[in-house]
Amino acid sequence: SLTNRLVKAGCRVQGVPGFYVDDNGCWTVKFHQRTSGIIIPIFGVDGLIHGAQIRLDHPLKDKDDPPEKTGVKYLTLSSTGKRMGTTSGSPIHFVGDPCSRVVYVTEGCLKADVAHALMHRTFVATLGVNNTAKLDELFAFLHRNGTEEIIEAEDMDKYSNEMVGKGASKIYALAARHGMRCRRLTWNPNYKGIDDWQLALRRKEQKMKEDPGMTFKEQYLNGLCGLEMLEACTEKWHAMKVDSISLRDYLGLTEQEYDAYLQTAPGVSFRELLDSQRKTQRFRVYQLDLEHGETRAFAFGGIDALHKAGFQQPPAAEYTLVYDGELICPVGQDERDILGRIFARYNQAFPPDYRGRSIAPSDVLELYDESERRYFYCDMAGFVQVKFSPALAKKA
């Protein structure tokens, strides 16, 4: 019915990918219930639609596929092999300014469109990580239009999947062939694609605006502020002019602590009362050495990926010590909560002396003091205690 409407409207469907003549001699399109989904247009640098991708409602799986395999999520709309059908030709998707000085390259049209909407940058997308043949012609065009730099923004599994890694390397070679610089974009590896990462940043910004935040005491016990913050919190409470919450409750203090703060009761000082409730936890961060684009089968993967790669424990010789720091935390805080805080603190915004990547699966954290050292592998859903030989690890 879709094809009939197009033909009646005067459109020519012959030679258009996806359309073909069926057994009854009628023109139709290869878009059926099994391949239903979102149709994503593939735009060329000329602004015209050169093809389409289908984001399937139900990923396609072969009957012999293992249960854990997710199946094919995307299909290119094509009628190759059908009567008077046409191949898609694997077109390159383009979104943004054809005269942009910097152009990002990724895999997947929808991903490029989402990243473009969030970043306001120019994106090129291939239909597969190794489907780069038509980039040659496009790069030549972009160079003539003034593009100076290509940024490879393939998914973060380029560090664990050799096929993805090789596809990313082809982008470098093609950029060099046409006289353009090329550099690799690496982001928080907890997010596979550049679109996921950018969306997470946007959501974090929104959450920070909506989050009422911690009380002064919670911030102090977690090492997020000093005693000088008391004055600012008190001024903020006065400015609020809300009778429903007392200053003591607003600061999060007990009655004894509040009296010590006001200096209306003899005994231990306010600072001593609070300092007795917090401690310093030392920790180290070890990460896989991926500086030169190497791939590791378990890079950014959980403990199952480590075991599948043939390791029962993290191979320390393939790790680098990237940070040795400390965290102030409440006395008695659970070990898992401490690990979670380290994960969150070194996940997006880093202190100036931190030289590692965002903490992610496959990283190893060490909690230590004068008497004990414990090592934890960052899994997909938390931390798993492991054995580790720090003496074998390199230093950043």
Rank of each mutant, 00 (worst) to 15 (best):
S1A: 15
L2I: 12
F19N: 02
F19M: 07
Y20R: 05
Y20I: 05
G25F: 12
W27D: 08
T28A: 01
F31Q: 05
F43Y: 15
G51A: 09
Q53I: 09
H58C: 06
D62P: 00
K63C: 08
D65R: 08
G71Y: 13
K73Y: 03
K82W: 13
T86E: 06
F94G: 06
G96R: 13
P98L: 07
V102W: 09
V105A: 04
A112S: 09
D113L: 14
H120R: 14
G128H: 07
V129I: 14
N131E: 15
A133I: 12
K134T: 06
L135P: 06
L135F: 13
L135V: 10
D136Q: 12
N145G: 05
N145L: 08
E149F: 00
K166Y: 14
A173S: 15
R177A: 15
R177S: 13
R181K: 12
L185A: 08
N190H: 02
Y191N: 02
D196M: 01
D196T: 05
A200L: 00
L201E: 02
K207E: 15
E210F: 02
P212H: 00
T215K: 00
F216Y: 02
Q219L: 13
C225I: 06
L230P: 00
C233G: 00
T234Q: 08
A239D: 12
K241I: 03
R248P: 02
T254G: 11
A260K: 03
A260T: 07
L262S: 02
V268E: 15
R271H: 14
R271N: 11
E272V: 11
Q277F: 03
R278S: 13
R278Q: 14
L288I: 07
F300P: 01
P314F: 04
A316C: 09
A316N: 06
L321T: 11
D324W: 00
R341A: 13
A344D: 11
P351Q: 06
D353K: 10
L365I: 15
E370S: 14
Y375N: 02
K387N: 14
